[in-house]
Computed example of a mutant assay.
Amino acid sequence: MLDALTLVTGVAALLLAAWCGWAAYRDQPTKDWHFIGMAVVTLLAVVQLVVGIVQLARGEKPAQGTTIFVAYLLGAFACVPAAGFMSLTERTRWGSITVAAGGVVLAVLQVRLYDIWGG
Rank of each mutant, 00 (worst) to 15 (best):
T42Q: 04
A82P: 04
A100L: 06
P62S: 04
I53Y: 12
I97Y: 12
V40G: 01
S87E: 11
A23Q: 11
V41R: 00
V108W: 01
V99T: 08
I36H: 02
W19L: 11
L44Q: 04
G95H: 05
Q110V: 02
A63F: 09
M86S: 14
D115I: 13
R112P: 02
G103P: 07
L56W: 06
G102K: 03
V47Q: 07
A76S: 15
G103S: 04
K31N: 05
W117D: 06
Y72R: 08
V47S: 08
V51C: 04
R58W: 14
L74F: 13
C20S: 15
Q110G: 14
Y25P: 00
F85W: 13
G59D: 07
K31T: 14
P81T: 10
T98R: 10
V46H: 02
F35E: 08
G52P: 11
V104F: 04
V51F: 14
G37R: 00
I68H: 05
G95Q: 06
A107N: 07
Q48R: 12
L73I: 05
D115M: 11
H34P: 00
L113S: 05
Q64T: 09
L73C: 07
V40Q: 04
V105C: 06
E90G: 03
D27G: 03
V80G: 08
G75C: 08
Y72D: 12
F77N: 01
R93S: 13
V80T: 07
C20P: 03
R112M: 12
R58G: 04
Y72N: 10
I97E: 09
V104H: 03
A57V: 14
A45N: 10
S96T: 10
L43C: 10
L74T: 14
T30R: 01
R112S: 06
I97A: 13
F35Y: 13
C20W: 02
T66F: 01
W22V: 08
A71T: 12
Q55C: 10
V50H: 07
Y72T: 12
E60V: 11
R26E: 11
P62K: 01
V104T: 11
V108R: 03
T30L: 12
R93N: 09
